[in-house]
Write a protein that binds this DNA or RNA. Structure first.
Length: 282
RNA sequence: GCGUCGAUGGUAGAGUGGUCAAAUACGACACGCUGUAAACGUGUUGCCUUCGGGCUUCGGGGGUUCGAAUCCCUCUCGACGCA
């Protein structure tokens, strides 16, 4: 049996992924699944550059606005939901198009990664957070010497998660991945540095005129704490134009850092006319 | 014009005779990442290097000293105060 085809649109922020995804969806009868770790939250619209109803042009979009910003959302949940959506869309005889810039989320689906079935344990985390990385490493060593050897020994977040898993399962299972069920076509969008910068500047300016500050006010009213807001991104942490531009540019760089390891991605310069070329490849 | 204070690496900002190529933070660059991922972490960040070191730096110039980012003189610029 031939594998179903799934199109992935990924790449740096502000390169026009959403737009391209909608165009492709129209042409090939597709539905879009977002791969953005922040657009899942209700109410984070302007700051995350969320696609508007109008921009969707009638194409169904999934995994946008699915949780309240108060609740934390994670990759594992994303993977589960996205895989459900993929099945659903295929059963409707349509093509799933995954579109977004969160590389970790995309890999979670396309690389068949299996996450250990250990949900975050906030109680345990709270206790562990108070300890130093040295102490944490010691604890992990006792529980799982192998993982302790390979882990990023100064990374608290990773250490805590490793301990969390080891406590629940006895040890941290080896990374496992299953063969993907689908045929993924990965299309990467990038912009030359100067063009990216201009695009980002324009976008951030628009963010402020569109009412980013107001959006933050609303979130605060909905009793989202300042701490939580800053977790949701620099746009939500006392943003200024300069801060957001710099942060976005840094983020774009970080995204490339992640994506460039994936040799399956076919890259396209988003400042050129690429739609027809991409369509030919699908 | 007089007086006081100040001038430090890409930026902010410590340092006030040796342990200073100069803390720290930010930025920049490189890299990692398996349930927080716009998160979290690591390395480099004057120049050269056979990686042992070598060389030139703390507004400019001059001096004191075995030794100066640190003390003195002077010039330039800036802030404030008095005229």
């Amino acid at each position: 049996m031939q594998k179903e085809k799934i199109i992935i649109i990924l790449g740096q922020t502000a390169t026009g992924k959403s737009n391209l995804a909608v165009k492709i969806a129209k042409k090939i009868n597709g539905e879009i699944i977002s791969a953005d770790s922040r657009q899942v939250y209700v109410g984070l619209d302007i700051g995350t550059g969320k696609i508007t109803q109008k921009e969707m042009k009638g194409i169904p979009h999934h995994l946008i606005d699915i949780v309240k910003p108060k609740n934390k959302f994670t990759v594992a949940e994303y993977k589960k939901l996205a895989e459900e959506k993929i099945k659903e869309i295929i059963s409707r005889d349509k093509t799933p198009i995954i579109c977004g810039g969160t590389g970790f989320y995309i890999d979670a689906i396309t690389k068949g990664v299996i996450f250990p079935k250990v949900p975050p344990n906030s109680k345990l985390r709270k206790i562990l957070e108070k300890k130093s990385t040295e102490q944490l490493l010691k604890i992990l060593k006792k529980l799982d010497p192998t993982r302790a050897k390979n882990i990023d020994s100064k990374n608290k977040v990773r250490l805590i998660r490793a301990i969390e898993i080891a406590k629940a399962l006895g040890k941290v299972p080896k990374i496992t991945a299953v063969k993907p069920l689908y045929k993924f076509i990965k299309i990467g969008l990038y912009l030359p540095q100067d063009k990216l910068k201009k695009k980002v500047e324009k976008r951030v300016k628009k963010m402020f005129t569109d009412g980013l500050l107001n959006e933050i006010k609303k979130l605060k009213k909905a009793s989202i704490s300042q701490k939580r807001l800053s977790e949701l991104g620099f746009e939500y942490n006392n943003p200024t134009y300069e801060k957001v531009v710099r942060g976005t540019l840094q983020y774009a760089k970080h995204q490339m850092q992640w994506f460039k390891r994936d040799k399956e991605i076919k890259w396209f310069d988003a400042s050129k006319k690429i739609f027809d070329i991409i369509m030919m490849k699908l």
